[in-house]
Design a protein around this nucleic acid. Structure first.
Lengths: 206, 206
DNA sequence: ATTAAATTTAACTAAAATCGTAAATTATTA
DNA sequence: TAATAATTTACGATTTTAGTTAAATTTAAT
């Protein structure tokens, strides 16, 4: 029988945070319940008090993770700053979260358990809608040219983190700072001439 | 019976390179022989033709790795460029190789098998001597002030990669490029005033 | 085309790792 | 102090992995 809901329980939280970092780094199958328990200084029996099995644990981690992501998105969306700054913060958010987990983790999420797969897909869908609405609103306000499908902007943001870590691009622009600058210039100005002195980093402070 | 020496064998090389990337990323115990074989498209029987067991494989990977490292060091040492440029290249080399493997891998190397542990320690020792000699020579030539123990320079170089990835330092200097610049300034000038326009990256080209 | 070598497939056993649970222990509260 | 809740220890059942072997298949060389 599973004890619910132990959100403020010390042992429970230790298990979740320990598991999160291990699973995000190595994926699901490489990490055993016993390892999580050891690193979290919690006995296995206590684990089974709070979780049915590993997939159940992963599910709860994912729920937390998605909730956090949505909350951070909404916080940026509702800030009282220029649209351009919001865009940058969203891209930084995407880059930061993309570095948290490995591809392996997402692959396993999709490859093994049906529940987890469905949860992840519906969460992705929900987030997509949220961000799409944000871009549609921005278009109505004239922040973007209206001929661009908002889904394409999402696609771009999704792929910036990929491009930032792409080995081929790394050989072309080795410095991460410069690489980010160039990617931003493409996003905001395409191949047209643009004000090359923009330091996108500087817009992020605060 | 183990077949020797199959350096130019395709399957052998596939096993070694596949294993290397898996082991460096996840450590030894998380990776199974069967996984290595699958990813390398080599059957288990062929694996046992070339290696006694996992530790034997790791040993051969380490040997290659150490040899490569020494070769790259010597190449830099013997280049016909200013000493300062050599220093920078060595630091870059250290940074690059440090990113290849995870701490987990080294920990397991020291924690489990006695042979591997000894091999790694003696290899480290040998490398230390090599680098120490380089610095002593540089001191004789007046490249460094003679009051600094060469071992301390090695210690510094060893720790630059650590500092580059240190979370606390990341919050202080978030941009990797800037962080590297500042670390280089400390190494070369200490807290004294220095020519702040030096772009260490630029010295690396070629 | 024939032979020899390299590789794979498919089984199998022993050992080790992992899961999940019942009973014992410790901490907490009434 | 007695009752209850939280946690651990210790253990059997299950699964995974390591390491071998025999026979079939592919590859390369003669």
């Amino acid at each position: 029988m599973i004890t619910e809901p132990p959100q403020d329980n010390k042992k429970y939280q230790d298990l979740v945070t320990t598991a999160r970092s291990l699973l995000f780094k190595h994926g699901i199958k490489r990490v055993t319940i016993e390892e999580i328990c050891e690193k979290a200084n919690v006995s296995k029996v206590t684990f089974y008090k709070y979780f049915h099995n590993k997939d159940d644990l992963v599910m709860k981690i994912m729920e937390d993770w998605v909730d956090d992501g949505v909350r951070e998105f909404l916080a940026i969306r509702d800030e009282n700053i220029p649209f351009m700054d919001k865009m940058l913060k969203l891209i930084r958010l995407k880059l930061a979260t993309a570095q948290e987990y490995s591809d392996e983790f997402i692959d396993e999420l999709m490859g093994t358990n049906e529940n987890l797969k469905q949860f992840y897909q519906s969460a992705t869908m929900k987030t997509m809608e949220l961000v799409t609405d944000f871009f549609k609103e921005a278009q109505r306000e004239g922040q973007f040219r209206k001929t661009v499908p908002p889904e394409f902007y999402i696609y771009l943001i999704e792929h910036i983190s990929e491009m930032m870590n792409d080995d081929k691009l790394k050989t072309i622009i080795s410095d991460p700072h410069d690489r980010f600058q160039e990617l931003m210039n493409i996003i905001f100005f395409g191949f047209n001439e643009c004000d090359k002195t923009i330091e996108y980093d500087k817009l992020m402070e605060g």
